Amino acid sequence: MDRIVIRIVKPITFALIAFISSYYLFGSLFISGVLSLIPLLLGWVGVLEAFSYTIAALIFIAAVVWAVVPVETKNFVRQQSDAFTNELTAAVPETKKPD
């Protein structure tokens, strides 16, 4: 009975950790949901459990590291990513539909 409970609860716990951590990092429910499905589904199936739990742990560690980064650094990273996004958007040619 204990093995069954552990096989059900452990993937749910890791999926919850991955969801909360990735939501803190990305702020998107969709991305968080997709990332949390990795440890949940692979843990329930019993395939690549160590890989899926490693992904959840790395997301958690990244969220903890990002939480202790100073605000000035976060603002700098945000400005740089916005500038990079604008540069990529400007470099992509516009496609027009044929009439």
Rank of each mutant, 00 (worst) to 15 (best):
D2L: 10
R3K: 08
R3F: 10
R3E: 06
R3M: 04
R3H: 10
I6S: 13
I6P: 08
R7P: 05
I8F: 02
K10M: 11
K10R: 14
K10T: 06
P11G: 03
P11Q: 07
P11L: 03
I12S: 11
T13I: 14
F14H: 05
A15S: 00
L16E: 01
L16T: 11
I17S: 01
I17F: 11
I17Q: 02
A18T: 10
S21Q: 09
S21C: 00
S21H: 03
S21Y: 03
Y23P: 00
Y23H: 03
Y23N: 02
Y24R: 02
Y24N: 00
Y24T: 08
L25M: 05
F26G: 04
G27N: 02
G27W: 01
S28H: 01
S28L: 09
F30C: 01
F30G: 12
I31L: 02
G33H: 01
V34K: 05
V34A: 03
L35C: 05
L35Y: 02
L35F: 05
S36Y: 06
S36P: 02
L37G: 00
P39I: 04
L40S: 00
G43D: 09
G43E: 03
V45P: 01
V45W: 07
V45K: 11
V45A: 08
G46D: 05
G46E: 04
V47I: 13
V47Q: 06
V47A: 07
V47N: 11
E49L: 04
A50L: 05
A50F: 09
F51A: 08
F51P: 06
F51E: 10
S52Q: 07
S52E: 05
Y53S: 06
Y53R: 00
Y53T: 03
T54Q: 04
A56D: 02
A57M: 04
A57T: 03
L58V: 07
L58P: 08
F60V: 03
I61L: 14
A62R: 02
A63M: 02
A63F: 01
V64Q: 11
V65L: 14
W66E: 12
A67Q: 13
V68F: 09
V69E: 07
V69C: 07
P70Y: 09
P70T: 04
P70R: 12
V71G: 10
E72I: 15
E72L: 15
T73E: 06
T73A: 11
T73C: 12
K74M: 00
K74I: 13
K74Y: 09
N75E: 15
N75A: 14
N75I: 12
F76Q: 15
F76V: 11
F76P: 07
V77G: 12
V77P: 10
V77C: 11
V77S: 15
Q79M: 13
Q79I: 07
Q79T: 02
Q80Y: 15
S81L: 15
S81Q: 13
D82T: 11
A83M: 12
T85Q: 12
N86A: 15
N86I: 10
N86Q: 12
N86M: 14
E87I: 08
E87Y: 13
T89W: 10
T89G: 02
A90W: 10
A91S: 14
A91M: 14
V92M: 15
V92N: 08
V92F: 14
P93E: 06
T95E: 06
K96V: 01
K96P: 10
K97H: 11
P98E: 11
D99K: 14
